[in-house]
Amino acid sequence: MKILLINLLCSILLLQSCDKGNKQMNTENKKEFSYAVTFSAATGFTAEVHEGYLADENKKMICGVPKAGMEEGPWQYDGAKAGQGGNVIPSYIDLTYVAYAEKKFYRVEGALPKDKILAAFQKGFKVKGNETENGKSKWEDGTYEEITIGAAPGGVIVVWLSGNHHRTEICRLQAKETTVDANDFYDNPHNRTQQGFFDELYKISLSDSIKTVIQKTGIPYGLWDKYREKYNYRFRLHPYDEKDTFDQIYRLNYNGESEYLTDTKATEMYKKDAIPYNVVFIMQKYNAEIRFNDEELMVIFEKFKEKYPDKPIEMVLVPSFMYKDIKVYAECDSEKIELKKVKVVEIWGG
């Protein structure tokens, strides 16, 4: 994890920095932005593009959706780029894909929120550039670099913008089941029937763990819409010596969004956000990576939302002496619940 974090921070610095003397990116008045297009899938629920494209308001094709083979997620992954992209903001999508867990082809066709996409590109986000001679860093403008289309069971389609360790949802669409001859999709030397194609690809494209889940409880339809529910909360550190603070936070959420916060004020603000999946906390001496359990968090957050609808939620990290361990509590109003299913992946530093 240390190597991963170092690589992550180095790549952030590389991507976000400009040579001294270069002007900051001015995105406010731009109408076109270069982007790659990628396709992803819900974690473990493998899907694959048959054909598809993004188009402008006149349905003139801008670029294809890449046919880069099977995609099995995770939901926070952007998928393979495979050379597709453009610079005209899209207004329309037409995409057909196969969902191997469901043994179905789906098609989504309809409008994309062009104005919202353009506004997100123009707004972008602030990133830290190179350190100056006094050791401080200037805030600079950054923006997104990819449009990612994610497919989840039940024909759920989510579109995100991604870039520089930030990922934001643009819209949620609904695909419908469609018919595609397997022989038009897959060069089948064994002359399998349509059902034979689905059965064989089910066997080879899904992990044993996902097959076990499906056999026991079925496909968890609706789960990815639950992930999109947002709550008003923040992370707070309750340090052993009362002096430590968060310096940076890199978070990925279950809904596929992510952000990298490098400003102390930003890390302390309450924010409407989906439940966290994996979070890296950078403190003054120690650092920690913590992974959260979706079922546990959804139960607690829904309970707090019902009991205290106007109260924000605190996610409190309580380190032990010398940061040998970290306990996490969810607090709202006067109620406090310890999270039993969090996994402290690693603690390092000191």
Score class of each variant (00 low, 15 high):
Glu102Phe: 03
Thr96Ala: 08
Gly79His: 02
Arg236Tyr: 08
Glu71Arg: 01
Trp348Ser: 05
Gln76Cys: 07
Gly154Arg: 03
Ser162Arg: 09
Lys67Gly: 08
Asn58Tyr: 04
Leu112His: 00
Glu306Phe: 11
Glu331His: 11
Gly163Asn: 02
Leu237Asp: 04
Ala330Gly: 05
Met315Tyr: 10
Asp78Arg: 02
Asn278Lys: 13
Gln215Lys: 13
Asn255Tyr: 10
Ala288Phe: 06
Trp75Val: 08
Lys324Tyr: 09
Tyr97Thr: 00
Gln174Met: 06
Pro220Gln: 05
Asn278Ser: 15
Tyr221His: 08
Lys114Leu: 06
Asp184Cys: 01
Tyr144Met: 05
Val65Tyr: 00
Leu252Lys: 14
Met269Ser: 14
Leu339Pro: 02
Met322His: 10
Thr46Gln: 08
Val345Gln: 07
Cys63Lys: 01
Lys327Asp: 15
Ala274Asp: 11
Asp94Ser: 06
Ser258Arg: 08
Leu223Ser: 02
Thr217Val: 05
Ile347Ala: 04
Val88Arg: 03
Ile62Asp: 03
Ala151Val: 04
Val98Gly: 02
Asn293Gly: 02
Gly129Thr: 10
Lys123Ile: 02
Met1Glu: 14
Phe321Met: 14
Asn255Asp: 15
Phe321Glu: 15
Gly83Pro: 04
Glu229Gly: 03
Lys67Glu: 12
Thr262Val: 14
Pro220Trp: 10
Glu48Pro: 01
Thr212Arg: 08
Gly64Met: 06
Asn287Arg: 06
Lys336Leu: 14
Lys307Ile: 06
Gln84Lys: 03
Lys305Leu: 05
Ile147Trp: 00
Pro113Asn: 03
Gln284Thr: 11
His165Met: 13
Ile170Met: 13
Asn255Val: 07
Tyr202Pro: 02
Glu131Met: 05
Met298Ala: 10
Thr217Gly: 04
Lys203Gly: 09
Glu335Trp: 03
